[in-house]
Design a protein around this nucleic acid. Structure first.
Length: 503
RNA sequence: GACUCGGUAGCUCAGCCGGUAGAGCAACGGCCUUUUAAGCCGUGGGUCCUGGGUUCAAAUCCCAGCCGGGUCACCA
């Protein structure tokens, strides 16, 4: 146990003194509220008969004591409102303890209180609650950072240390209203997406997080062990193969918000656990999915920000449909002058090398093309753009292109040079699928760490029973949340980003 | 993993050319019945991230480590 600071000791003493006055600092009974700070401030008009008897609850965030009367600020989940507290009104009798002792001395910033009174405007025009009753609802024993905002809206002494903010997110949320807002927007994003899918008639499903074979993507999994079965289990790196089994089972459309786990590096855009949304729709192809995706994102942007436009760092982006479609071949041609069509692995290898790209022998054709695109093209797509028709080798779950056997019917949606969505006309030929899995195994053995290392034979069996033509699409929800809230770090859109343990 | 910047009071930070540890807010005592980054007078508060080293003397210089940010590498 670490030594208590001066201020923590004072608060514990205040707690004891409150008990000595016969007040329970942690009462069990509910506190009835009939309004909130934002409702009062936005709807109150001077002279109106509304808000004559309001009751709200929240944290005491500021005390300005001026002798026998005081101003204070109360913060509830909606915002802050000023309180006016007059000694003789909260203490109508002879005993002035509630004001002189409890309010002035024993209540600390951060304490939860409930107040009742009428709403009025002070002579400076600030909507305030004239308090007639004040009740302590819960004591706070640690001092919160005190963040002040002046008349011009400038924030003083902001609580900004990223380590403290992420480790003690609860404090961050209390004192930084803009942080609370990020997560409200994140929730609106998920809600809007669900609504869009449900309105289209698709079914929200849940599939295993604990998987015996980590499939559907190539990434290092977290491994655990099931004691009773005595087998290794993996936290899912993707849910794709399970959703396709459900399409085999006969649903027209299924989707899942999937918490995925990848045992890889962490940086501004990667957290070991993250949220993907995947959707699969029967009898559709990737062209249909492109239109569906751009309408979806337009809908979500409006739901979150009230407009299709969004700001991300220095970029202004517009999610209004439709989005440009560029083939991967054309993208590489545009940015390098090199045409990948019909080139052999050797030719691609030389071309990449000449472009200054680090190449090695483990790279197959698809990987080389992907490297060229990643190095030379990706970062220039700022506005939402569909990059389409990826090489076959790097898309083992995707159907061969209807017009070119070297390509697949795949698109990725790029925003600000980053991948936001990935979609296919799904491969449903079980024999082709088996061969692609086997190629992946070979690539893996050759040293390509991105290639899949497992073959899911049950998934192949499901395909053998027949899967209708299907298009599937996945969205990195954290990344999308970053774009819609103008945050360049994934940590800002996760309540509790992964951190090394303290001490 | 590499490079780089940082870690000093509850919070935000200064001090870093070595010589008794500072400010603002917060806290504590006092004054104040419409203030609002309230104000005025007074007071207390520190493992200067940890461990070594150099030195008469280290928050400050050197080495190692821990934690965090950024950049890069990695990342379907």
């Amino acid at each position: 146990m670490t030594k208590l600071s001066e201020q923590e000791l004072v608060r514990r003493e205040n707690l004891e003194k409150i008990k000595e006055l016969g007040i329970n600092p942690f009462p069990a009974d509910l506190y009835e509220v009939n309004s909130n700070a934002t409702e009062i401030k936005s709807k109150f008009e001077e002279g109106s008969e509304d808000f004559k008897d309001v009751s709200i609850a929240g944290r005491l965030m500021m005390k300005r004591i001026m002798g026998k009367a005081s101003f204070a600020e109360l913060q509830d989940s909606t915002g802050k409102i000023q309180l006016y507290i007059n000694r003789d009104e909260i203490c109508p009798g002879e005993n002035k303890d509630m004001y002189n002792k409890v309010f002035k001395k024993l209540l600390d910033i951060g304490d939860f209180i409930g107040v009742r009174g009428y709403v009025f405007k002070t002579k400076t025009g600030e909507t305030s609650i004239h308090v007639s009753e004040l009740k302590l609802l819960s004591k706070s024993l640690k001092p919160l950072p005190v963040v002040k905002v002046d008349a011009e809206g400038n924030v003083h002494d902001a609580f900004t240390d990223p380590e403290l903010r992420y480790r003690q997110r609860y404090v961050d949320l209390v004192v930084n209203p803009h942080v609370r807002e990020i997560f409200v927007k994140r929730a609106k994003l998920f809600q809007a997406m669900r609504e869009f899918f449900n309105n289209a008639g698709y079914l929200e499903v849940e599939t295993p997080v604990l998987q015996p074979i980590p499939g559907g993507a190539a990434a290092k999994p977290f491994v655990t062990h099931h004691n009773t079965l005595d087998i290794p289990m993996y936290l899912r790196i993707a849910n794709e193969l399970y959703l396709k089994r459900l399409i085999v089972g006969g649903y027209d459309g299924v989707y899942e918000f999937s918490r995925n786990f990848r045992n890889e590096g962490m940086d501004r855009t990667h957290n070991p656990e993250f949220t993907a949304m995947e959707i699969y729709v029967a009898y559709k192809d990737y062209n249909w999915m492109m239109e569906f995706t751009e309408k979806l994102l337009e809908h979500c942007a409006i739901a979150v920000n009230g407009t299709t436009e969004a700001t991300f760092g220095e970029h202004k982006i517009d999610f209004k449909a439709p989005y440009k479609r560029v083939t991967m071949r054309q993208a590489i041609l545009d940015h390098t002058g090199f045409d990948i069509k019909g080139k052999t692995e050797g030719e691609l290898y030389e071309a990449a090398k000449n472009m200054g790209i680090e190449v090695d022998d483990s790279m197959g054709k698809g990987k080389l093309i992907d490297e060229i695109f990643g190095e030379k093209c990706e970062s220039s797509y700022i506005q939402p753009t569909f990059i389409i028709d990826y090489p076959k080798e790097m898309s083992p779950l995707c159907k061969m292109h209807r017009e070119d056997s070297e390509l697949t019917e795949r698109f990725e949606l790029m925003v600000c040079g980053k991948e936001v969505a990935n979609a296919y006309s799904e491969l449903n030929d079980p024999i082709d699928q088996k061969e692609r899995f086997e190629e992946q195994l070979k690539l893996s053995e050759r040293g390509d760490e991105e290639a899949a290392q497992f073959i899911d034979f049950d998934f192949l069996r499901a395909l053998e029973y027949g899967m209708p033509p299907t298009s599937g699409m996945g969205i990195g929800m954290d990344r999308l949340a970053m774009f819609l809230t103008n945050n360049e770090s994934i940590q800002e859109v996760l309540f509790f980003p992964q951190m090394k343990p303290e001490k």
